[in-house]
Nucleic acid binder design. Sequence first.
DNA 1: ACTTATATGGAAGGCGCATTCCAGATGTCA
DNA 2: TGACATCTGGAATGCGCCTTCCATATAAGT
Lengths: 185, 185
Amino acid sequence: MSMPGRRADAVRNRQLALEAATALLAEPDAALTVEAIAKKAGLGVGTVVRAFGGKDALLDTAVAHLLEPVVRRGRDLLQQYGSEQALRAFLTELIAFQAAHHPISDQLRGLTTPATTALRADLVQVVAEMLTGARQDGVIRTDIDLATTTALISHLAFAIARAQPGNPQLADAFITVVMDGLRPS
Amino acid sequence: MSMPGRRADAVRNRQLALEAATALLAEPDAALTVEAIAKKAGLGVGTVVRAFGGKDALLDTAVAHLLEPVVRRGRDLLQQYGSEQALRAFLTELIAFQAAHHPISDQLRGLTTPATTALRADLVQVVAEMLTGARQDGVIRTDIDLATTTALISHLAFAIARAQPGNPQLADAFITVVMDGLRPS
DNA sequence: ACTTATATGGAAGGCGCATTCCAGATGTCA
DNA sequence: TGACATCTGGAATGCGCCTTCCATATAAGT
């Protein structure tokens, strides 16, 4: 991991900056400016920016760190439970995650940085796999095509998370309604 | 309409600024800066700002102008059709409207200007009335309380509109899924 | 310990935007 | 038409932010 000619303090500071950014991403109403990140990390702004080559790259890395376990968790669920149950559980966790990292969605809309884009695609992929399995099990309607259903799920999960961050009652209701609506008639 | 001491050109320019802002609100990817509005209206920036007392006030008025007919339309639907049918039709129109004025949602999140806030409340009120009627008709489940259901509908409509602006197939699928999910079991 | 390549803090620079200001223009009223 | 209150354009100002820069500090190698 440590590159040649790369000083130890630089590596450590990069890590500190990353942790500070990640922490701020979980704070609602946080400013999320380079200066705020630097202060939280106990570094100068120059150091923070230099470690990643720009604010966007830093945020990209931070978001990737946050998103990666979510995607992995989705894969685990899929392997461990049946498709329908996995989907339901994953939705619950996705919503909770987004609610806990509320700033992510706002801040990064339209950020087409590489890692974030890739992970977003992975997320959609996982949801699509769950839906495919559930369709084969006959518990999800097939009169709406897979891509549309996947898009629906993804966007609705996003919406509900931002609607009332941290209101589990609303999240439950959302999941119930959508899952019921997705069953075959 | 013309106030005393208010010069005719000032009134006309105010109208021009309002129209320019409204037009920009319907243009996806429009800059929506005061300068852009001024240029589109053929006015100087000072004139535009002065006419409303600030950018936010201008946008507030523009959004109110746009939203008012939507709310009225909802009331008409409610009076003309049964609750369920009105709800379905209104959702379709709401989504189309939001898709056509895509910048509104992004630009005005958190804008707590008076007119916009009031109209948003009216919108929710109309949806709540439709749902109340539909519940009484026995076509909407009552195991989820009214407020939650209303919030659900509002946020979901918002989500789908932003998901794929102008993709009627997705919008239809969304409405079908949610309406099916809202039926009593 | 000394040298040198590398890193640091934070001031200065640059940019995009809303707002303010004012010299000049233009509607209004007698 | 003349006098004057009102309005106008757009340059100047202010503000928040990201990025760049460089004099100083510090790790690494010998």
